[in-house]
Structures are given as structure tokens and as C-alpha cells.
Amino acid sequence: MRALWELLDREGEAAAMVDMDSLRALSPDDPADPFHAGLGVENLQAIWPQFAARGARWLLLTDAVERPAQRAVYERAVPDAAVIIVRLDVPIDRVHPQLRGREVGSSLEWHLNRSVELQSMMIERGVGDVIIPVDGQRPSEVARLILDAVQLHVRSPDASEMPRP
């Protein structure tokens, strides 16, 4: 996300960057909403107008999207946005070493299992307007692939006919 944000900056595009995990980080967990999804959306609704008022044209948002229907959540939180869901298709054997370098203890085990579960869900449910295969490219290269694919998606009269990169 940082590489994409920097690319947009170099191209003169005003962009805001938000990690949904940060917007819903709260302890203890709520049994009725263990991922604090509602809190995250409320926080996004509260901060987007501040970014927009300062000229942000792009909102780079990271989140685990489990279903295509989640689009409606983002559309409500960021009114008048053209929501484009980008899924990075990363081989699981590339994901796990990253997690091992970042997580510890029971968190590591949970994230290892969750990454496999999420990847399967996203593939089976067809999550992603734009799907970017990632396997060893530098972040700046992935950022360029994302930006090019998103711009093509926006220009395409029928986005469903857009070839996948």
C-alpha cells in the first residue's frame, strides 16, 4: 500500500491511506463482533470527510474482503466513491514467511491458518474486480501493476470484460 501511495504522490495524485485493522483495533474482543467490523466502518465514515476536504481523490484501503458484497459497506462509508476491490494473488508459500517474520505465539498460528482460509474464500467467492498476481516482484512493481489495472478498469466500458493482468 505504501508503494502505491508513493507512486500516486509522484504522479501528482492526492491520496489517503487507511488500514482497516488500525481503525478497528480494540481490546477486548466483542463476542457479537469479534473483528470490530462495525467500529472500523464507523471510524472510516468519520475520517474520510477530513481526507476529502484536504483534496484526497484516492483512498487506498487495506482490508480482508471475504465477499464481493462487502463493496456496499465501503460505498456507504465513502459516499460517491468508485469502489474497486483489488486482490493480490500471492502464493501461500510467500505469505507464510512474511507472517513468521511479523507475528509471534498464538497470533502466528492464527494468522497462518487465517491466511489459507482467506485465500480460499476469496478465490471461491470471486472476490476482486482486479486481481494482481504477485510472486517476487518489488513493491514498486506491484504498485505500478495495481495502478495500471485500476485505471484500465475505470476506463473499461464493461469492466467484466477486462482481461485479468
Rank of each mutant, 00 (worst) to 15 (best):
R67P: 01
V90A: 06
A56M: 08
P34D: 11
R76V: 02
W110G: 03
L99N: 05
R102M: 14
H96Y: 05
R2N: 13
Q70Y: 10
Q151D: 11
R71A: 06
R76S: 08
D30W: 06
L118W: 03
Q119W: 07
E161T: 14
R138P: 00
W58N: 08
G40S: 07
R67S: 15
R24M: 14
R57V: 06
A14C: 10
D80H: 15
W58P: 09
M20F: 08
R76G: 05
P165G: 05
H96Q: 09
V127M: 04
F51K: 02
M1K: 07
W5Y: 14
G105I: 08
G40L: 00
V116T: 14
R76N: 05
M20C: 07
M121N: 04
A149N: 02
V18C: 01
E103C: 10
D63L: 07
D63I: 04
L39G: 03
D129V: 05
H96C: 04
F35C: 08
A25F: 13
W110P: 00
M1E: 09
A81R: 04
V142S: 08
D158P: 02
P31R: 11
P49K: 04
L4C: 07
A14M: 11
I123G: 13
D33L: 04
M20L: 13
D29T: 09
A82G: 08
E141L: 09
M162S: 06
E75F: 02
R67E: 15
I146P: 00
S107G: 14
S27E: 08
A56T: 05
G126D: 13
I132K: 01
A56D: 10
L26S: 06
V104E: 15
G105K: 10
D19G: 08
D19N: 12
